[in-house]
Amino acid sequence: MNRPRLFAATVPALLAAALCAAPAASASGTAAPAARPHVPHCVASDGFDFNKVFHVKERIIAPPATCRVAIAKEPWVRAVLGWSTQTAEKAVYPAGYTPLRRAPIEDFNAKFVSATYVHDIGTPQEQTFTFDKKRVLRTGLTDLDGFPQSVPVSPPLKALSVGQHTSTVFITLSAEHCDGFTTDRAASCLPAGTIQFSDDTPFEVQPRPRDTKHPDRRPD
């Protein structure tokens, strides 16, 4: 995976934080629990399997065009491209910048406060959910070029209505962070505060497939 493009420098304070939990799975009324339906994995063109790497059993909405479908009444997870940094030994920084941690990736991790997920931004249906670092930040990863990487991955999010939606991700940092790749502040640094970390990713919520055991049942 590659570093994300940032589509905004800073943004004003977002809506109040809210938490959402996935519904508990129910067992069948007879001997054994009903089998869970197969959930297609989100796999990028380079073979990166988001579900496998992040140990996610729900459908994932992510940058690859093949990962843009959720199912009605089923929770889903939002993933983005990760943030990569130079190694500690080769890191360089703009003049006047002093990292909080020697390794740039550890500096990013230390300054990462939270991630905010906005559904249908700018519409009457807009919803905002914020989760702290412990719930979202996946660390100890490397990107395709072998650089250290961290990735914010949401907890399971509540199902949305059938139809077209967008998902936008913001992150909040406690202080300025520089990735160690260049001495160009504009190219290598993120400002303190809340910044947009993804584009307004479009996706579709589709009706649940017809239950083959109950052919007269209409799709949800």
Rank of each mutant, 00 (worst) to 15 (best):
219 P>M: 06
203 F>H: 00
132 D>Y: 06
61 I>S: 04
149 Q>P: 06
49 D>P: 10
136 V>T: 11
215 P>G: 15
16 A>L: 09
85 T>P: 07
132 D>H: 11
82 G>H: 02
129 F>A: 14
13 A>L: 13
85 T>R: 01
87 T>I: 09
111 K>I: 11
26 S>G: 10
119 H>S: 07
42 C>N: 05
36 R>V: 11
204 E>F: 04
91 A>M: 07
59 R>G: 14
15 L>G: 13
78 R>C: 15
19 L>H: 14
70 A>Q: 03
5 R>I: 13
74 E>L: 13
5 R>Q: 11
18 A>E: 08
216 D>P: 05
138 R>D: 06
82 G>W: 01
90 K>D: 09
20 C>K: 08
189 C>Q: 04
164 Q>H: 09
118 V>C: 11
169 V>C: 12
24 A>I: 06
53 V>Y: 00
27 A>W: 04
206 Q>M: 14
19 L>R: 12
73 K>F: 12
219 P>H: 04
131 F>K: 02
87 T>V: 10
57 K>P: 07
34 A>N: 11
22 A>D: 03
113 V>R: 02
99 P>S: 08
130 T>C: 12
194 T>F: 01
141 L>Q: 05
217 R>Y: 05
158 K>L: 13
126 E>Y: 06
61 I>W: 00
114 S>P: 11
86 Q>T: 08
175 A>R: 06
195 I>F: 03
59 R>I: 10
94 P>S: 11
93 Y>P: 07
205 V>C: 07
65 A>M: 08
108 F>L: 15
75 P>R: 02
144 L>E: 03
128 T>G: 12
136 V>D: 00
162 V>R: 00
165 H>N: 07
149 Q>D: 08
69 V>K: 04
132 D>W: 01
168 T>C: 11
53 V>D: 00
75 P>A: 15
46 D>A: 11
130 T>L: 03
164 Q>I: 05
52 K>N: 07
9 A>K: 14
207 P>S: 10
208 R>E: 07
85 T>E: 00
35 A>H: 04
109 N>Y: 05
182 T>W: 01
58 E>A: 15
212 T>M: 05
79 A>N: 06
17 A>H: 06
154 S>E: 03
114 S>G: 15
192 A>E: 03
146 G>E: 04
213 K>W: 04
153 V>K: 00
152 P>C: 14
34 A>P: 04
197 F>R: 02
188 S>P: 07
83 W>M: 14
105 I>S: 09
8 A>R: 11
7 F>S: 13
77 V>A: 06
219 P>Q: 02
157 L>D: 02
104 P>I: 10
186 A>Q: 13
122 G>L: 09
54 F>M: 08
105 I>D: 01
205 V>K: 00
40 P>Q: 06
41 H>V: 08
115 A>G: 13
154 S>V: 15
67 C>Y: 00
56 V>P: 04
178 C>F: 03
176 E>S: 15
22 A>V: 12
210 R>N: 05
54 F>N: 06
169 V>D: 01
82 G>Y: 00
141 L>C: 12
124 P>L: 08
189 C>S: 14
110 A>P: 11
12 P>R: 03
187 A>G: 12
177 H>K: 09
106 E>W: 02
186 A>R: 08
65 A>F: 05
146 G>A: 12
210 R>A: 12
42 C>P: 06
157 L>F: 02
61 I>E: 00
52 K>Y: 07
97 Y>F: 15
110 A>V: 14
25 A>Y: 03
76 W>D: 01
83 W>K: 10
